[in-house]
C-alpha cells in the first residue's frame, strides 16, 4: 500500500510490471508442468511415422501373452473390427487409419484419442487392468450416418485370448456389397443401423411410408437399388442413394441377401 503515495504514472507502471511478471510466471509454470508430464511421465501425442505401411483391412495380431495389436480400419460408417474381446491384463497397441474420409477414434475412459485420416497411419497404446466394456466412438463428422459409427472393446476375465467381430469376409458377394457401399448402412448380423439389416430381410413384408406393403423379393430388391426414392420405407429416413448397378451385380446381391437367413 506504500505505492499509493507515488504519483499515478509511476504507480501504474509498477503495478503493471507486477501483473506482467505474474502472467509470465504462470505461463512458465504451465509449460514446466507439461515438460514434466512429457519427460518424466512419458505422456505423448500422435506423431509422424513416414515409413509405416498402411493396412487395407482391420485385423487382430498376437504379439505375445496378453500383448496384442489391433488394426482398426475406420470407414463410412463403422470400424473394422467392430468388437474386440481381450482378457483382463491385456496390453493393446492400436493402429488406426481410414479407408475413405476423416474419422475420429477415441477409446472412452483411456488416453487413446486419435484422428483417422485416409491412407495415413496413427497409433495408440493402452493397458486394460479392469474388466468392462470400453466404447470406441467416431468423434469427427464423417457423413450422414456419423452418429452410427462406434465399436467396443470388451475386457473380460472369462476369456484367455483375443477375439474379434466385424472383420472382413472373404466371400465374393460380401465383398461386392462392401465395394458398392451397401454395408455402410445395412449390417449383415441383424443390427438395424441407418437401414434394415440384410440378415433375415428376405421374404419379410416391408411397410412402406405410404401405407402399402411389399414383400422383399428379387424385384423389390432391384427396385430399391435402382430407385430407392420411389418406395420410402416406414421407420427409415429416405436417405438411400440410387445405385447404378448391372443386372449381374443385382443378381449377386439378391442371392447374398437370400442366403443371409
Amino acid at each position: 500500500m506504500a505505492s499509493s503515495s507515488l504519483p499515478p504514472q509511476e504507480r501504474v507502471s509498477r503495478i503493471e510490471k507486477q501483473a506482467l511478471w505474474i502472467a509470465t510466471l504462470f505461463t512458465a509454470l504451465t509449460i514446466a508442468l507439461i515438460a514434466y508430464s512429457v519427460f518424466a511421465l512419458h505422456a505423448s501425442v500422435p506423431t509422424c511415422m513416414p515409413n509405416m505401411p498402411v493396412f487395407k483391412h482391420g485385423s487382430i495380431i498376437k504379439h505375445g501373452d496378453k500383448n496384442y495389436e489391433v488394426d482398426f480400419l475406420a470407414r463410412m460408417w463403422r470400424f473394422e473390427p467392430s468388437k474386440v474381446v481381450v482378457p483382463v491384463g491385456s496390453t493393446l497397441d492400436v493402429a488406426v487409419t481410414s479407408k475413405d474420409v476423416t474419422h475420429g477414434f477415441q477409446i472412452l475412459g483411456t488416453d487413446v484419442n486419435l484422428m483417422a485420416l485416409p491412407f495415413v497411419l496413427t497409433t495408440g497404446h493402452v493397458h486394460f487392468d479392469k474388466p468392462g466394456i470400453y466404447h470406441i466412438v467416431c468423434h469427427e463428422y464423417c457423413g450422414a450416418a456419423h452418429q452410427n459409427m462406434n465399436a467396443l472393446i470388451e475386457v473380460s476375465n472369462q476369456v484367455d485370448d483375443i477375439s474379434a467381430e466385424g472383420l472382413p469376409s472373404l466371400d465374393a458377394a460380401h465383398a461386392l456389397a462392401d465395394a458398392k457401399g451397401c454395408l455402410a448402412c445395412h449390417s449383415t448380423d441383424g443390427t438395424v443401423t441407418v437401414g434394415p439389416s440384410f440378415k433375415g430381410l428376405w421374404g419379410q413384408t416391408s411397410q412402406l411410408a405410404d401405407g402399402n406393403t411389399r414383400m422383399v423379393d428379387a424385384s423389390f430388391i432391384k427396385s430399391m437399388i435402382l430407385h430407392p426414392e420411389a418406395t420410402p420405407i416406414k421407420g427409415f429416413d429416405p436417405v438411400m442413394p440410387a445405385q447404378a448397378l448391372t443386372d449381374d451385380e443385382i443378381d449377386q446381391l439378391t442371392t447374398y441377401i437370400q442366403e443371409l437367413q
Partner: peptide, 17 residues
C-alpha cells in the same frame, strides 16, 4: 492437430509453448 497423424510430436510441442 495434437491428435493428428503425419506431424512430428516435437513440432507440436514447440507450438504448444
Amino acid at each position: 492437430q495434437f491428435a493428428d497423424p503425419g506431424i512430428p510430436a516435437s513440432w507440436k510441442a514447440v507450438q504448444t509453448v
